[in-house]
Structure formats: C-alpha cells, structure tokens
C-alpha cells in the first residue's frame, strides 16, 4: 500500500484522529488517540505493521515539545509508515509494548535519553545510563553535571587548550 492509501484507510477506520504532516509522508497522532491507532496499525489485516523498526525520540529545541517517531514496516505487505506522536513535556505517551515487544527497550531508551514517559510500560527505567543519572542527556537544554558521585567531571583540558 502506498502512503496515501494508508492515510485513506486510517481515515475510514478512525476519522479525524490522524493527520498528515505537511510536505512529508508522515502521520501525526496525538497521544490520547495513539493507543487506538496503534492497535489498528497492528491488527488491521490490510496494514499489518508487524515490525516496529525504531522509535526515535526527538527534541524540537524549544524546551517544550518532545516527540517520538515510530517507524513501522510490514513484513507481510511490504510497506512502511512513519508515525509521530508529539507531546509537551510532562505528558506521557501510551506504550505499545503490548503490541510490539520491540517497543520495550526502545521506549526505555527514549525515556532514558529524552525523558519521554510511556504509560503502561511494564518496567520503565533507564537502560543505557545508570539508574541514578540526573536529567535526560539528549534534550537540547541538558547540561552536563559538574560532579558525578562526588567526582569532578573533567571538562577542560587545561594543559592543552
């Protein structure tokens, strides 16, 4: 299926709950509709997106809006879809772990790096950083800490610069 067909199909299934981002072949979904749409993406036999390739969390750079880009692929129907769910800081996104187990670690990574919260995730904790890390490093406004566990973080090469 082409992107337009997918959009048309989604419109009939859940009209008004998805929108196409202008100039891109990307669908935007609001967090409250996301659990419904994701179920359609997975279970609707014409779509059958059984392969969740990647969840990329991103920061728009305005300290407010964060987003997650879901890249789907269907091994059966051989088509792609990118869905974006954008939220304001502090709002959580419904988790899709139930539908795609691959989302488990990807959502944990998004939480770890960008501080996105996923509602319904069985075990949302840090994955790459240590549990007591403060802040979310991939946010644009992240500041590296001066100390980690009392150890100064070397930031300058005084003898070298």
């Amino acid at each position: 299926m082409t992107f337009d067909e997918i959009v048309a199909l989604l419109d009939t299934k859940a009209s008004g709950k998805t929108s196409v981002i202008e100039g891109k072949t990307v669908i935007s979904v609001s967090p409250e509709n996301w659990s419904e749409i994701s179920a359609i993406l997975k279970n609707e036999s014409k779509l059958n997106f059984d392969y969740l390739m990647c969840i990329s969390a991103y920061d728009k750079g305005d300290n407010k809006v964060y987003g997650a880009a879901y890249n789907f692929y269907s091994t059966v129907n051989n088509h792609y879809l990118e869905v974006r769910v954008e939220i304001e800081d502090g709002i959580s996104i419904p988790s899709v772990v139930e539908l795609w187990k691959a989302a488990d670690w990807h959502e944990r990574e998004a939480y770890d790096m960008m501080g996105l919260k996923f509602e319904g995730h069985p075990d949302l904790k840090r994955i790459l950083l240590s549990d007591d890390w403060e802040g979310y490093p991939l946010r644009k406004n992240y500041k590296e800490p001066d100390y980690y566990h009392g150890l100064p973080v070397p930031k300058d090469k005084s003898y070298w610069d």
Partner: peptide
C-alpha cells in the same frame, strides 16, 4: 581572555 576557568579540584559539589 579564556572562558575555561579551571575548577578547583576537590571542591565539594554545589
């Protein structure tokens, strides 16, 4: 002239 001021080693964290 320089931005980087060496932080005194051993100072406690804020």
């Amino acid at each position: 002239t320089e931005e980087a001021v060496v932080e005194p080693v051993g100072d406690l964290p804020l």
